[in-house]
């Protein structure tokens, strides 16, 4: 048994559900879990965390007024917060923010780091992560002062383990060289539902034909509370924004259900969604390679099949 830290990704006043798999991984065979949240009111997250075995939640801050705009300062404060409670292993969600903070911590402390992991063994000090875009999986042994590991959303099935929880605040005595500042956070025009954290994703390929036609995929995704993705060709053709791209040069996703509509099934696309729990393919070409590497397939025109699927889901 060890004491393990988990950096929690929050969504205003709530804990993002994607954290629960990370907490489950951290708990292992009964580890003690301390959760860290950044510049927030720790008590506000108690109820969301105690169901997953978190015994203490610590709000980490620094006296610098621009804490939220300085990722290097946040990383330094987290290192100090871990030291303060004698924690050497920290897990978090492999989101854009989680990856960034852990990489800053690892670089500043010369610690072992593995990002985008699909498994972790805290007793052995190892992580499992894809190499070569999911064609292979690597087992990595980390060493150094800290063990830092970010876990791909949805990679680990969550299980509850309720316990008592306390909340506290830690103000780190850290400073920053001021060479990097977040000036602004602006709307990018991309989808509100974060693709990499969605449980269900409906993706359109080249045959979708236009930006407007994506609405049939949106309706289908909405019927399942999911998000909409796009293939590289659909993005490069201007049918969808790059933020929606799934694949090697886009987002890596691992939803419970992935429905590919009009996708050929390229190696580079599979690099981004291969670890989905269930893959469904809809394509009018019965010889499309995707049918050889999916779980369920329907040969048919996506413009007929997708609306029919939406209707069937609503039944």
């Amino acid at each position: 048994m060890a004491r393990i830290g988990v950096l929690i990704e929050t969504n205003e006043k709530s804990v993002k559900p994607a954290n629960f798999g990370v907490l489950t991984a951290a708990r292992g065979e009964g580890n003690e879990i301390y959760a860290f949240v950044l510049e927030a009111d720790a008590a506000a997250f108690q109820d969301g965390l105690k169901a997953y075995g978190v015994s203490k939640v610590i709000a980490v801050g620094a006296s610098d007024g621009d804490f939220s705009k300085k990722p290097d300062l946040q990383a330094a404060a987290l290192v100090a917060a871990m030291k303060n409670v004698e924690i050497t292993a920290l897990l978090t969600l492999s989101s854009t923010r989680g990856k960034d903070l852990l990489a800053r911590m690892a670089a500043a402390t010369h610690s072992g780091l593995a990002l985008d992991c699909i498994g972790v063994d805290l007793d052995a000090g190892t992580c499992v992560k894809p190499y070569f875009a999911g064609k292979t999986e690597a087992t990595l042994k980390l060493s150094g002062d800290l063990f830092l590991c970010a876990i791909r959303p949805n990679a680990i099935e969550e299980t509850e383990a309720p316990c008592d929880i306390t909340a506290e605040t830690f103000t780190a005595d850290v400073t920053d060289d001021g060479k990097l500042v977040i000036k602004e956070v602006k709307a990018s025009g991309s989808a509100k539902v974060d693709l990499s954290e969605a449980n269900v994703i409906v993706t359109g390929g080249r045959p979708i034909g236009s930006k407007e036609n994506f609405s049939i995929l949106e309706e289908c995704a909405n019927a399942m509370g999911g998000a909409v993705g796009a293939s590289r060709v659909a993005v490069d053709s201007g049918f969808a924004s790059h933020a929606m791209q799934v694949g090697q040069t886009g987002k890596i996703v691992s939803p419970k259900l992935y429905i590919g509509c009009g996708l050929s099934g390229s190696v580079q696309h599979f690099a981004g969604m291969k670890t989905s729990k269930v893959i469904v393919a809809i394509n009018n070409d019965k010889d499309a390679p995707i049918f050889t590497k999916c779980d369920y397939g329907i040969v048919g025109d996506l413009f007929e099949v997708v609306p029919a699927l939406t209707a069937a889901l609503k039944k």
């Binding site: 610690s111 292979t136 087992t139 980390l142 060493s143 050889t292 999916c294």
Partner: peptide, 17 residues
Amino acid sequence: LVELVSLEQVPERSNAK
């Protein structure tokens, strides 16, 4: 800091329904 312990091939899914 990071040792590659092993590399394993990931099999493709097959036998789609």
